[in-house]
Amino acid sequence: MTECPICFRQSMNGTELCEYHEEALTRLRAAFAEWEKALGVGWIDYLSLVYRTQELGLWVREIVAYLTSRSAASMLS
């Protein structure tokens, strides 16, 4: 049984995230299409822009931070 790396809740079957952060990731991905249509931005810029909004939900914010730090770590290694 693994724990979500963000909040230490139990991970969902087959994923590393808990149900909340998994859902947050799904919603983050779903909203990308609208941001792309609205601003013509790519995924990385999207993450950076959406993170700066005050309205962003806490779990989505945590997912963005997690994705960003993971991608930074993979670039360093």
């Binding site: 947050a24 779903a30 941001w35 609205a38 959406v50 962003l56 939900g57 806490l58 989505v60």
Partner: peptide
């Protein structure tokens, strides 16, 4: 609370 925590804003 969950809806708020999962909210992704879109620009307009």
């Amino acid at each position: 609370d969950k809806e708020i925590n999962l909210f992704v804003p879109t620009p307009f």
